Computed example of a mutant assay.
Amino acid sequence: MDAQFATAAPATDASSFLDLAITLVLNSWPALTLAVQSNWGGPTSADKRDWLCGAISDMLKERPETDAEDLEDVLIQVMNDEFEVLVDDESAGDVALEIMEYRAQTARGDFSAIQGLWEKWQRKSSQKAAATNMFKQVETRDEDQETDDDEDESDAEDVEMGDAPNLVRAPREKAEPEIDEDGFTMVKKKR
């Protein structure tokens, strides 16, 4: 999920809550997430996911007769056309049902489940950010230590090591082939 979405203003009406739900559900769909992270839709994979969120929102507003099967068909087609992913694990149907349930809730004026989903997403995002920052700090410390170690090595005086053992073997002398009394060359097994 991009930083712009993570800092978006909270939803205030039924339409914006539904848009939020669609975005959260699609950003949580493992098949789409993997396709975006792997750039299976090309370098604009994240933009394609954002476009899909808007397209589904528009479809639900412009065609109120849309049902879960219609939505599932759209999800499968977009995954195939835009990301070259054949979704055959029925997850597209689950995503479609979840979006349709949030649509029904917003139509009733019930936004509590979407608000809970949003809060869960924010907690998860902040935990990821904290983990990323901790990783960056550890990585920075490791780089600092390597630099310090390099400086210590360069400051140290050279120590005489004496005669080091030969690490390169002298080539073996090739044994002359043995020829038996009939004139045949004997083949010896290598060790």
Rank of each mutant, 00 (worst) to 15 (best):
I179H: 05
P64R: 05
R103Q: 06
S28A: 09
Q37M: 09
D144A: 11
K190P: 06
D148K: 15
D155I: 00
R49Q: 15
P177K: 09
Q4E: 08
S45I: 11
L60I: 10
I56P: 06
E98D: 10
V85Q: 07
K136D: 06
K124W: 03
S28L: 03
S15R: 15
E139S: 13
Q145P: 06
E62K: 07
A104Q: 08
L52N: 00
S154G: 01
Q115P: 00
K124D: 14
R123C: 09
E119T: 12
S91N: 08
R169H: 02
T185W: 00
M59F: 06
E69S: 14
A8I: 02
A92P: 05
A31M: 11
E143G: 03
L20H: 02
D58C: 07
D158K: 15
L86M: 07
W121E: 15
V159M: 13
D148S: 08
T132P: 00
A14N: 11
M79D: 02
A46W: 04
Q115C: 04
D149I: 15
E153Y: 10
E143L: 10
E72Q: 14
E173K: 13
T7H: 09
E65K: 11
P30E: 05
V25I: 14
S125D: 08
R141E: 15
I76P: 03
M1C: 02
E146K: 05
L24A: 07
K124N: 12
D89F: 03
I179D: 14
M161C: 05
E143V: 06
L26M: 02
A175M: 07
D81R: 08
Q37N: 12
D70C: 10
T44I: 14
D73G: 15
A164L: 15
D110A: 07
S45Y: 09
E139M: 14
D142R: 01
D67A: 07
W51F: 14
S16C: 13
Q37Y: 01
S112E: 08
A156Q: 12
S57K: 14
V159G: 07
D47R: 14
T12G: 10
A156R: 15
P43N: 13
S15W: 12
Y102N: 15
A3L: 10
A92H: 03
R169M: 09
L34N: 08
K189F: 03
S16N: 11
R191W: 06
E143Q: 06
A3S: 07
A21G: 13
V74E: 04
A35W: 01
V87W: 02
Q115M: 07
D73Q: 12
T12L: 05
T33W: 05
D110S: 09
A164I: 06
G41T: 04
